[in-house]
């Protein structure tokens, strides 16, 4: 995925990685390290919490906890949004809205570890680790050692 990102962006100039809280941030961190090692770069990276931009915020009961958002300058850059699972596309829509409030990237790419289909919005990932096909009742969980103690992708079949 790291190699593909560099290819698609024609190098590391103007490249910025933005991880979506929470596991997207960890994945973006790993990708950054891989790219920096391979290319000798020092990529700017940031983290984005999309809670305040969710389209269902008015209807959820208890308020979700808001995590940290910290972005480097985005103007004129190529921003690669990194997340663990792409499903309905609503998280990415929120992330796009939020990025727009911070600046105007020249280009935005989406990089996800797992694309599980089931889109509710016209959104597609540019770089995909793996695409799988699961039903709406199933759950796909990505675990990362930084947060969960191990790396894994778990598929939990629903009823």
């Amino acid at each position: 995925m790291a190699t593909e990102i560099v290819e698609r962006c024609g190098g590391t100039d103007a490249l910025v990685l933005v991880g979506i809280q929470r596991r997207g941030v960890e994945l973006a961190g790993r990708i950054k390290r891989l790219i920096d090692q391979a290319e000798g770069s020092a990529l700017p990276s940031g983290k984005l919490d999309i809670t305040l931009y969710r389209d269902d915020l008015q209807t959820v009961g208890p308020r979700p906890v808001v995590g940290e958002t910290m972005l480097p300058d985005l103007d004129g850059r190529i921003a690669v949004i990194v997340d663990d699972v792409l499903y309905t596309g609503r998280t990415v829509r929120a992330a796009l809205d939020e990025c727009a409030d911070f600046g105007r990237p020249r280009r935005i790419l989406l990089c996800v570890l797992i694309d599980r289909g089931g889109r509710e919005l016209p959104i597609q990932a540019d770089i995909v680790g793996t695409a799988i096909s699961v039903g709406p009742a199933d759950r796909v969980d990505v675990l990362v050692s930084e947060l969960d103690g191990r790396d894994a992708v778990e598929l939990v079949r629903g009823a």
């Binding site: 305040l52 209807t59 959820v60 009961g61 699972v85």
Partner: peptide, 19 residues
């Protein structure tokens, strides 16, 4: 304001929120 403004669970069920 954010914490107090939580919506109704009934609405949440109707809206059927997604990821």
């Amino acid at each position: 304001l954010y914490l107090l403004a939580g919506g109704s669970p009934d609405w949440a069920r109707q809206a059927g929120g997604g990821e």
